[in-house]
Write a protein that binds this DNA or RNA. Structure first.
Lengths: 314, 314
DNA sequence: GGTTTCGGATAAGATATACTTAAGTGAGAT
DNA sequence: ATCTCACTTAAGTATATCTTATCCGAAACC
């Protein structure tokens, strides 16, 4: 009748048995014989001073004590298993799981990945493209690329891109749009995935920064910024293009940015990982590679006039 | 390098060692020799394939793998320990932990407890008087007396009191207050702890039910209903007294309720415990005793005209 | 500067724990 | 009535775990 924890193997046996509601199946799961499992349960019941199962002839059912024990036991072993996986992941230098938003994944990471894979064939990359904020431990993520302002406490965080955004379009379309004022007649492509920024860095902000009197027109709205860029690439309109998503297209001339003025925000793309994880070989390799790639981007058009969206808030 | 859980005793040794940041202290906690603990940690590190501690000469510190493992391990063992305590509590027929609001505890439970203790000397009672909703598992509560409407799923719930409330005062004060209209001149004692009820059962509701044109005056406000009753007992004013809190005072004449009209609400006092727990001997004894006590109360003044607060909502 | 002390590591033997095989039991299924 | 299934019991065995005893290195102390 000790108040300390009972033998843990017996507890684990109970958890498996209660989950399956069958001693035989639990024995299978734990790779032991049913006899061993039966003995474990019996020993646990002795420790507790009362039965955990009611033995019916073809089945077992939980007693009230069993019902009280099961949820916490399942939760406890679940937490242990997850922690163990997390610890194992630390020693694993062959895989690297990265999470980033869909737009960044599509327009920045994916086109460049081949280069990283060639430079580091020993690292197996996994991607999780979602805007949902993931938990490093729970979701078994090594590295996150996030767009935002503040770095969380306890995380290693490094700004990787000085982002700016400016109107972009195909060269053909650009021939009909000579001045910012001409944008009033053009199809403006809107993006919804940066609305969480305050102040917003949208067409309204750019129009104000450019000193245009009129408010921007409505137009097609896209839930992901990369889709708006795709629409612009197809000649479907003018997008307020982000450097990170359009660098390649600007470089090979698929898009042009005829007006020098560009918007910035306080938010930046950051490389984020748990503190200390930046020294793991594959994380270090990935960070070095990203910095190399972004350094090239930072050199692009460094003299462009930048206006912070916060300074033109309505 | 198995992906299954490592030996659990070794994991527990790690958790204790990391918590104390000392193998020797951990060995003390687990009642084993330092040598045994050292061996456990070593075996765990072999399972993991990398060290969990960095051995400095007078101290140890966690490696990154250790830091990844510790929080989940602590959480896991904590959950197991709590579940085990919960299961042990099921078999314990000698203690009974009850939670109730402060007013109900002071005015209903406490005065009657002596009777229960006499009838069941073998049961050790514990009380937790708080308005905060407690969790049966987490807070190791057997029974809750709650005032509210809906019974939660998965809980045994039984209404124990058909509550009503009506103006009450000392007999001396009553001599100056002959009709409900006279309440306009009296000091009204207000209570804040039923404001979560919708519609509220307060002086405003009673005035509307009584057909009084004027709204009730302001007056002293009490955060707990029992304090308002105490103030009324001291002759300090008129309280909208709840039967449950004033039954004794009405019975021995310390308070009188001169006006027949009483308010009811959809909410009632309920006896709540986890499903199945109502059959545990001490819980059953407590419930039987409560029902016996409340049956007596239900017989008090059964012909009083009742108005539901919901029917006089503004 | 030498000695002590503290905290941990290691080795060998002892013991308790957990597992397996084999035989047994009772109630529902056939 | 017999079979079968799911769990139990018993005996023997393997393995994991603990203890005692000894060793080691660095910080603390004299």
């Amino acid at each position: 009748m000790s108040d300390r924890l009972p033998p843990l193997t017996a507890l684990r046996a109970f958890e498996a048995a209660a989950r399956h509601m069958s001693f035989a199946k639990a024995a299978g799961e734990l790779n032991v014989t049913p006899a061993a499992l039966s003995f474990q349960i019996k020993s646990l019941e002795e420790h507790l001073g009362q039965p955990l199962f009611r033995r019916l002839n073809r089945a077992v059912e939980l007693t009230e004590a069993g019902r009280a024990l099961l949820p916490g036991a399942t939760e406890g072993f679940g937490a242990l298993a997850q922690a163990w996986r997390a610890a194992r992941r630390v020693g694993d230098v062959t895989t690297l799981t990265v999470t980033a938003g869909p737009a960044f994944t599509a327009k920045w990471l994916a086109p460049r990945l081949f280069g990283f894979a060639q430079a580091h064939p020993e690292i197996e990359l996994r991607f999780s493209a979602t805007l949902r904020l993931l938990d490093f431990e729970r979701d078994e993520i090594d590295v996150a690329i996030r767009f935002g302002k503040a770095a969380d406490e306890g995380l290693y965080s490094r700004t990787i891109i000085d982002e700016w955004m400016t109107p972009m379009m195909t060269p053909e379309l650009a021939e009909t749009i000579a001045t910012p004022q001409d944008l009033a007649r053009a199809v403006l492509l809107h993006q919804d995935d940066t609305v969480f920024l305050t102040p917003p860095a949208d067409w309204g902000a750019w129009f104000r920064a450019a000193g245009l009197g009129a408010a921007p027109k409505g137009g097609p709205r896209f839930s992901q910024a990369d889709h708006a860029v795709d629409a612009a690439l197809a000649g479907g309109g003018v997008v307020l293009g982000r450097l990170s998503l359009t660098y390649g297209a600007l470089h090979d001339g698929a898009l042009v940015a005829p007006f020098p003025l560009a918007l910035t925000t306080d938010a930046q793309y950051r490389f984020v990982c748990p503190k200390g994880a930046e020294d793991r070989p594959q994380v270090r390799a990935f960070l070095d590679w990203i910095l190399e790639q972004t350094a090239e981007m930072a050199d692009y058009d460094p003299d462009r006039p930048l206006v912070n969206a916060a300074d033109v808030a309505p």
